[in-house]
Measured scan of single mutants.
Amino acid sequence: MIIKINGKYYKIKKIEKNPNGKYTITTENGKKYEFKNVKIFSEEELK
């Protein structure tokens, strides 16, 4: 799965839903981001 952050695309390693309704997304390079609204892309959609 792929996520778009600030115009760049990252591969997703893990998605966790937090009790506060936000999502914590861990990218393949180990960085964590927290979002309220998340749009996930499949690799097929990006081709």
Rank of each mutant, 00 (worst) to 15 (best):
K4S: 09
N29A: 08
S42Q: 11
I25G: 00
K8R: 12
E45F: 07
N20K: 05
T26E: 10
K47Y: 03
E44W: 01
L46K: 08
P19G: 11
G30K: 01
N6H: 11
Y10F: 10
N18G: 14
F35T: 10
E16T: 11
M1Y: 11
M1Q: 07
F35N: 02
S42Y: 15
I40E: 05
K14I: 08
M1R: 05
E16G: 03
F35H: 03
K8T: 09
Y33K: 02
K32F: 06
K39G: 07
I5A: 06
E43A: 03
S42N: 12
K11L: 07
G30N: 06
Y10M: 13
F41C: 15
N29H: 08
E43T: 03
K13W: 09
K47T: 11
T27L: 15
F35M: 13
K14H: 15
N18R: 08
N29G: 13
V38S: 05
N29R: 05
K8V: 11
E44Q: 10
I25K: 00
E45A: 10
Y23A: 02
K47C: 15
E44V: 07
I12L: 03
T26A: 01
E34Q: 13
G30C: 03
K36Q: 13
F41G: 05
E34P: 02
F35E: 03
E28V: 14
S42G: 10
K31C: 15
I2C: 14
Y23G: 00
G30E: 04
Y33H: 05
I3R: 01
K22F: 14
S42A: 08
K31R: 10
G7W: 01
I2Y: 15
V38F: 07
N20C: 05
Y10L: 11
L46T: 08
I15S: 01
K36V: 14
Y9V: 06
Y23S: 02
N18H: 13
E16Y: 05
S42E: 07
K47R: 12
K14P: 00
I15D: 00
I12G: 00
N37A: 09
T26H: 07
K47N: 12
G30Q: 01
E16N: 03
K31N: 10
E44F: 02
E44A: 08
Y9G: 02
K47I: 13
I12Q: 00
I25C: 02
K11Y: 08
E34R: 07
E34L: 06
K39C: 15
N20Y: 05
N6Y: 10
L46W: 07
K17M: 13
F35L: 13
E45Q: 12
V38M: 09
K22L: 14
I12A: 03
E43S: 03
I12N: 00
T26L: 07
Y10G: 01
N29V: 03
E43D: 10
K8C: 15
F41W: 13
V38C: 14
Y33M: 06
K32E: 14
K22M: 14
I40H: 06
Y33F: 12
I3S: 01
K22E: 11
N18S: 12
T27C: 12
E34K: 05
G30T: 00
K13G: 06
K11P: 05
K36T: 15
K11D: 03
Y9K: 04
N37R: 08
L46I: 14
K39D: 12
I40K: 04
E44P: 09
K31I: 10
K22S: 15
